[in-house]
Nucleic acid binder design. Sequence first.
DNA 1: CTGTCCTCACTTTTT
DNA 2: GTGAGGACAG
Length: 788
Amino acid sequence: MQNDFLSGLNPVQRQAAETTEGPVMIIAGAGSGKTRVLTFRIANLLSKGVDAFNILALTFTNKAAREMKERISGLVEGTEARNLWMGTFHSIFARILRAEAERIGYPSNFTIYDTEDSKGLIKNILTELQLDDKIYKPSLVLSRISSAKNNLISAREYNSHAEILDEDRQSGKPKLGLIYETYDKRLFKASAMDFDDLLFKTNILLKQFPEVLYKYQQKFRYILVDEYQDTNFSQYLIVKKLAAMYQNICVVGDDAQSIYAFRGANIQNILNFEKDYPELKVFKLEQNYRSTQTIVEAANSVIRNNRDQLKKVVWTNNQKGEPVRLMRAGSDNEEGQQVANRIFDLRMQHQLANRDIAILYRTNAQSRAMEEALRKRGIPYRIFGGLSFYKRKEIKDLLAYFRLAINPLDEEALRRVINYPMRGIGKTTLEKIVVCADQNNVSLWEVISNLEQYRPVTGATAQKVSDFVMMVKSFRHGLVSSNAYELAMHIARSSGLLKELGNDKTPEGISRHDNVKELLNGIQEFVDTPSESEDEVQERTLDVFMQDIALLTDADENDKEDADKVSMMTIHAAKGLEFKAVFVVGMEENLFPSQMALQSREELEEERRLFYVALTRAEQYLYLTYANTRYRWGKIDFSEPSRFLQEIDPGLLQLPPDIAPESRGFMNFEEERLGFGGFSPRQGAAPAFKPREKPEASFAPKSNGSSGGFKPQPKMVPVAQAGNSQAFVSDDLSGLEAGMEVIHEKFGKGKVVFVDGRSGEKKATVLFDTAGQKQLLLKFAKLKIIQP
DNA sequence: CTGTCCTCACTTTTT
DNA sequence: GTGAGGACAG
C-alpha cells in the first residue's frame, strides 16, 4: 500500500526499484525508463522509513540531480526529499572536502580552479621554468596531469614511476613530472583545487583518515550512482570505499552509452562490477519506451559493430514509425538550410512544436551554420553548451574579485584583476612581484600586502599596489558584515568594473554589462532564497554563494524560459535527453567519427557509442545529414559521408531522392572508398594489418603496467602481420555464425559480426581487418570460413 | 604603462 | 574567420 507508486513500473523495473538491500547493477538500455527506476527506488527507500540523510545519489549533472529531487518530492509526502544528498561527484565531494578540509591542510573556503585557471597556472609555471609552451602545450600538460590524478597517481608517484618518466622522455617532454609537481605545490599554496583534485583529495581523505571514512560510510547507508559507465578510476574507488560497509550500492548505467573515456571514464568499471560484488543482482532494462521500432533497430544495427559490450537486447513495443532519413547537402550552409526547411515541414505536417526538435552535432563549431540558417528562416532556437554563463570574460572578472575577497591566496584571481580595470599596475610591476614572491618563497598576496617588508616596487607604483590591497581587504570585511548581494554590488562598483563595462557602448559591451547585472540579480535571488537542506543552515553570504559556482555548467543554468525553441547542442550535451524529432548533422568522415578518434579501435568504438547516443535521442523522426564541403579553419574542406551511415541497416534508411539505393549511390561510393584498404583513406598503402587484439584481451584494461589503468599518451602501436596462412579454409557456409573468422577475395580476412536473413538470402555482416565493415549476401560473396 | 597592429593556432567531446 | 598573445611605438 505504501508502495502504490511502484505499480507504474514494468516487472523488471519494479524489481530493480524494490531490491533495496545489497549490491545492485541496473543495465539500462537507451530510453528504458532508467531515471524512472532511480526515482522510484529512492522514493521507495524513503517510504520504507529510510532517512533521506542516509541516502547518497550521484548523478552526472546538477540538473539531473535537481530534476530527480523534484520528481521524488512529487512521490513522497513532506519535504524529506530536500535532505537527500544528491548531486554530481564533484559537487558532493567538494562539499565533503570543505567540511573536512583542515585534515588535509586546506582551509574550508578553498578555491576551485576551473580549466581556464588551471591552464593559466600551467602557463605561469612554464614561463618560470623557462619551458617552451609550444612543446609543453598547456592543454596537453593539463590533460596529462588530469589523467594521472584520475588514476590516483600523485606528483610524487609520477616522478618515481620509471615507466611514465620514460614515456615522457620518449615523447620529448621530460619535464612533465616537474611541471606536475610544481603545479600541485602552487595549487596548494593558492588554497586551490582543480576539478580532478576534488576526487583525488577525497580519496586521500578517505584513505588517510579512517574515522572520516567510517563517518561517511555510516552516513551513506544507501548509495546510488547514475551513469556509472562514465565514472573514472578515482570516482570508482570513492564509491567502492563508501559502500564497503553496508554494500547497499546501486549503480545504473549503459555500457553502450559510455562517451567520456577521453576524460578518463573507464568502461571497465561497469564491465567488472560483478567481480567487486559477488552477491550482485543484475537487472537489465531492455524495453525501450522512447523511440519507434525503426529508430531502435537502426541504433541496434549501429552499436552491434562494437566489440566491447555487455549482452543486451533493446527492443520496443512502439509502432514501426517513419524510416530514418538521410539528407545530403553541397555545403555546410546548405545543410543548415535543408535542416531549417525540414523543421518547417515537421511543424506544419506533424504539428510538432519547436521544443520537440533538436539539432545535434559532434563539435560546437558546427552550430554556426545551423544558427544562421535557422535565424534566416525565423525559427527560434536555443544553443546549449558553448561557453557557459559563468565562463564569460566579464563574469569571470567579477567572480575573480569575489574569489580574491574570499581567498586572497588565489593567484589566478589576483593576476586576473590586479590591473583590471586598469590601475597602472602593468606587466613589469607584476613581474617584479612574481620574482620577489618566488625568491622569498611566499605568495603574491604576502608580497603585496607587506610592501615595506619585501619592497618589490617603490614610489608611485607601490602606492597603486597598496591601494589595490586596501581595496581587497575592505572587500574581505564585507564577507562577515554584509549579505552576498550587498557585498557583490559593493565590489562591482568600487572595483570600477561596473563603470568600465558601462563605458562600452558597443552592442557587445552593452551585453557584457547586462550579463554582469544578471549575475548580480542572481545573487540577489540567492539571498532571498532560504537555505535548502535542514542538514546545515547556511548564511546567505558571498562565500556560500561562491562555493560551487566553478562546478556549474551551462546545462545547469535556469531553464526559466521554457519558451518554444529548437534545441541545438553537442551529442555529449544531449545525453539523457529526448526529442520527438532529431537531426544529427555533419555525418562526415573526420568529423564524425572525429579525426582525432581514428588512432585506435577503442576510440572509434567510443565515437560509435556517441552515434548510438545521438540516434537514441529521437522518439519519432530521425534525420541524418552530411555535406560534401564544409568550412573548416576558414577554408573549404571536402568531406565524405561518415562510415557510420553504412552501418545502419539499409532497410531502415531512406536515402536522398537523387541517390538510388541500388545503383551509383552513396553505398557504392563508400565501397569504392574503402576498396583500397584501411579504415582511413589517408593511410594509403597499408599492407595486411591486423588491427585487432585477441578477443579475450578485449575486456581487460589495456597495457597499463602497474600504474592502475593509467593511459599513456596516444601513440602508434605496431601491428602484427596476419600471417596464419596455413589455417584450414572451408567454403561451406551453412554453419556460419557470429565470431567466425572468414576470408573474402577482395576484402581479405575478417570476423563475422552477425548473420541474419532466411536461408536463401542469408546476409552476413563482417568486420574486415583492412576493409572495415561490410554486409554481404552469402549467395554472392565468395566467403570462406577459416577454421582454427 | 598602454594601445595598436600583427601573427598564429584553433575545432573533439566536459565535471 | 576569430580571438588571444606578442612585438613595438608612444
